[in-house]
Structure formats: structure tokens, C-alpha cells
């Protein structure tokens, strides 16, 4: 008899899987999809309570490849945040897991990215960042580093847009950077993001194996492996099983309690990085950029910012579940409205 591993809500991991990927073999995005499956399973999220959101591009195709038991919406280019906003307003109980790319977010969708953060929409926003437009055959995107070079074409001479720096400047409460090849770090960060209430931005460097995996590309596997400045080891401990197998180091470490009672443990390695200090987070990002490095880990955390639906003072029942009596004022109220206009 085979032993089946079940999560806290008694589901096998296969319940979280999706369709077959049509991305290039070895694509970083597929690794991220696997991590999303793993994280949702380990966190014991009910698949029917998740909403998968995406825009357009290679990364935005991936919701077809994970969480097949969850509803999803593959929207239009750069507009995933607005569709997520509308859905969140009428059903605040859904867990929104969104995937976007660097083209989808940093160029065509920059406005919506910015404003979703400003509103502190309650969602996990994963950017699968490879510095190129893959589906249209490898044009540079706005996140490509100055001096980086893709397989074909010339060296990029423009300054990059750093999405973590932007999120930090905009007051986002959960900002992290990771690498599709760092499975352990990425899993812990995505699990933590799923336990966070409010906007969680995770910028994941995800090499494009077809157009930009040459060594001169700053987002290639080899380059990232050699230039990854890991801020800290990240461990996630879920609220329902506090004795999960985690090696807690003897030295200095920081524990952060998340909204659902889960914890994230950051084992500080030499650096003085303080995740509660946005200036320190920005310094880490800019310092790394200056040295052509990638800084990864949880850059900043603040769990006390109210979300959009909290700010709006909505009724407790998700609006999409209201019945006719709750959604339409009664006839007597219209009699009163008419009377008021008549001045009587």
C-alpha cells in the first residue's frame, strides 16, 4: 500500500496541480509554478478559495499550469491588477494569487501595479522577471539591467526599473525578491506571502532559457547563481503545526508573525538588514544594483496596513453573496426618496 501524503485539509498535492505547461523546457516560470503548487499545498489553502489572476505574456500563461481546482482569470496585457481589484471588492474572502511578468508589470501595466500597491489590495503579486518579452521573441523589457546583454542583439544601455524599489517607495507592506532556482527560499517567501494580509510583492528572477540565458545576461542562471546576495535564510512555520522541521540557527535570527498566525524566521547572515526599515531595504536594493548583484530575501515587512476592503467599510458578507433584500433597497425607501425630491 502506497503512503499518500496529505496536507492539513487532507488533500494530496495532486489536488493543487494544473495542466501541462507549453513553455520552453527549462523555463524558470515552470519552477515557480511548482513552488506555487507546493506552497499552496503546504499551507493547506482550500483550492476553491483561491483565485488565480494574470495578465498577458509567458508568465501570465502559467495559471493554466497550477491550481487546476481554482477559478482563474487570464486577463489582458498589464491589466491584471484592476480585474483583481474588482473581484476582490465583491469577494474579499477569495485568496488572490496573481502572476505577472516584467513586460506585463513594468511597462504596459505599470500604472495598475502602482495603484494596486497604493490601495494595499489583499493579494499575492508574483512577478516572473526575466528581462525580456519571450512570447514576441526576446525584446528587452524595462527591468533589464544597464550593461546586460541577451543572446542576440546589443547591450542594454538604459536604466532598469526595479520593481522592489518601486514597491518599497509606494509603501507596500510585503516586498521580497527571489530566484526561480532558489526553491527553498522561494517556497518560504510565497508561503509567507500567502499568510500575509494585504499586498505582497515577490519579484522572482526567472531566467529566459531561450532568449537570455547567456552569461552576459544578468538574469541568466549562471549569472544569478554567482551574483545572488542572499539577505538571510528564510524559513516558514505554519500556524497549524509549529513543530515543522526547521533548523533554527544558534546565532541571531528574527521571527515575524504573519496575519494567519504563521511565522517567518529570518536567519541573519552577517548583514545588518532590518526588515522593518524601508530605508535599509532600499539601501540593500540600490547597493546591489550598483555592484551588478541581485539581493534576495524578504526586503521589507509591515503587517499593519489596512487593506482596500477594510478601508471602504464594507459589510461583512462578500458582496457577491448578498441576497436581493440586502442588495436592493425596499420599496418604502423609494417612496421617501421621491417625497424628498418633491419637497414634502
Amino acid at each position: 500500500m502506497a503512503i499518500v501524503k496529505l496536507n492539513v485539509i487532507d488533500l494530496e498535492k495532486s489536488e493543487y496541480k494544473g495542466g501541462k505547461s507549453s513553455l520552453c523546457p527549462g523555463c524558470g516560470h515552470d519552477q515557480i509554478s511548482n513552488v506555487i503548487i507546493q506552497a499552496a499545498w503546504e499551507n493547506g489553502l482550500p483550492p476553491e478559495g483561491i483565485a488565480k489572476m494574470s495578465g498577458i505574456g509567458c508568465s501570465s500563461k502559467t495559471p493554466a499550469y497550477f491550481l487546476g481546482k481554482s477559478h482563474g482569470f487570464n486577463t489582458v496585457h498589464g491589466r491584471m491588477p484592476s480585474v483583481t481589484t474588482g473581484a476582490n471588492m465583491v469577494n474579499k474572502d477569495l485568496a488572490f494569487i496573481a502572476v505577472s511578468g516584467d513586460g506585463d508589470t513594468a511597462s504596459i501595466g505599470m500604472g495598475q501595479f502602482v495603484h494596486a500597491i497604493r490601495r494595499n489590495l489583499d493579494m499575492v503579486y508574483i512577478i516572473e522577471n526575466n528581462g525580456v518579452y519571450g512570447l514576441t521573441k526576446g525584446q528587452y523589457s524595462a527591468t533589464v539591467e544597464k550593461g546586460s546583454k541577451k543572446k542576440k542583439g546589443s547591450i542594454n544601455s538604459q536604466n532598469p526599473i526595479d520593481l522592489c524599489a518601486m514597491a518599497l517607495n509606494l509603501g507596500c507592506g510585503f516586498v521580497a525578491r527571489s530566484f526561480s532556482g532558489s526553491k527553498k527560499q522561494l517556497t518560504a517567501l510565497i508561503r509567507a506571502a500567502m499568510s500575509h494580509k494585504g499586498m505582497a510583492i515577490i519579484d522572482v528572477i526567472s531566467p529566459c532559457v531561450t532568449f537570455a540565458n547567456n552569461d552576459e545576461s544578468y538574469k541568466s542562471y549562471n549569472y544569478v547563481k554567482e551574483n545572488d546576495e542572499v539577505l538571510h535564510i528564510v524559513d516558514y512555520i505554519s500556524h497549524y503545526s509549529p513543530i515543522e522541521e526547521v533548523d533554527i540557527p544558534e546565532g541571531q535570527y528574527r521571527e515575524i508573525e504573519l496575519f494567519d498566525g504563521s511565522k517567518i524566521i529570518l536567519e541573519t547572515i552577517g548583514s545588518n538588514h532590518d526588515t522593518t526599515n524601508v530605508v535599509s531595504a532600499l539601501a540593500a536594493v540600490h547597493e546591489a544594483e550598483k555592484n551588478d548583484k541581485h539581493v534576495t530575501g524578504l526586503l521589507y515587512y509591515n503587517g499593519s496596513i489596512p487593506t482596500t476592503t477594510e478601508t471602504l467599510g464594507l459589510t461583512d458578507t462578500p458582496l457577491s453573496q448578498l441576497n436581493e433584500e440586502e442588495g436592493r433597497p425596499n420599496e418604502q425607501s423609494l417612496v421617501k426618496v421621491n417625497a424628498r425630491f418633491r419637497g414634502s
Binding site: 474588482g86 465583491v90 469577494n91 457577491s320
Partner: peptide, 8 residues
């Protein structure tokens, strides 16, 4: 669209 999709 988001609202309509989610049943609102």
C-alpha cells in the same frame, strides 16, 4: 470585469 467575474 473583475466584479462581474466574481459574481458582483
Amino acid at each position: 470585469l473583475g466584479a462581474g467575474w466574481a459574481g458582483g
